[in-house]
Nucleic acid binder design. Sequence first.
DNA 1: ATGAGTGCAAAGGCTTTGCATTAGG
DNA 2: CCTAATGCAAAGCCTTTGCACTCAT
Lengths: 155, 155
Amino acid sequence: MSGANVHPRGQNGADIVDDVGTQLAGSSQRFTATRRAIVSVLADADGPLSIPEIMEATDDLAQSSVYRNLAVLEQAGVVTRVSGVDDRVRYELGEHLTGHHHHLVCTSCGAVADVRIPDALEQDLERVLTRLAASAGFAMEHHRLDLLGRCAACR
Amino acid sequence: MSGANVHPRGQNGADIVDDVGTQLAGSSQRFTATRRAIVSVLADADGPLSIPEIMEATDDLAQSSVYRNLAVLEQAGVVTRVSGVDDRVRYELGEHLTGHHHHLVCTSCGAVADVRIPDALEQDLERVLTRLAASAGFAMEHHRLDLLGRCAACR
DNA sequence: ATGAGTGCAAAGGCTTTGCATTAGG
DNA sequence: CCTAATGCAAAGCCTTTGCACTCAT
């Protein structure tokens, strides 16, 4: 939530916004004020945000612009869709910007927070999953691991 | 997809349907033909099904009945909502009926198939996640692990 | 018998689309 | 300049709800 939120790759919100500008330029997409605002809000969040949350945090953006820009940003690989426990769609910055992580999902209020697991386990996991996928004829691209339960606020 | 699909707890579709009958009775919910049909379809599937898939497989059920019954079954703990990569909601039988498992999610066609990981890894995972959750003030209830990639049909 | 379940159709809510206007490169 | 992006409002689509009828216990 804080503007000083530090990401594991060592980038702060401003750095991330710069990176995205470069990335969008590469996809021949413009980096408009609206996109900047959305990225900036996501960069400052400590977990994926729902569209209402994004709209509230950006203020004065047409809904359609938010939807359209999230689609563009997703297409360009800047943001990723995340599913929680409610059917509400959430978005976060791509892991190339924030680093690989997982989620704490509250089954009571639906909030989602980022969490990282120890490297050793992450590597075990990746190794086993890769084998598993191969034996199922499945071309794994990545994995998704969520902890479901009650957040500190809902306990 | 096959009616002879065998579940890890060693129950076949028919056994599961019986169990659900008992479970529903315990929740003072009737076990109607519609509910039987839905449970039976889910028991025979090899992964979570979307609502269109359920309707197609049951045939001749009103949409509203499917929605309402899935809600009842979810409430009673018989079925669980699963999220794939599309925003389409999917349902599967609860793990007390099917055993603990994870999902192969195809990023191309959206299909979801069940998969199990080795016990050893599962236990490591559970142990680490429990500690992790505790240190984040989060009361973990369970975890969710998906492999995302391209299924055999979409490679 | 009697309250829950069902089907049909209408209402709801989130998401997408069309179109004229504005602004980025 | 010239095309893409924006805002507003209308249209779509999946899901939920209301209501009269039927069925399970």
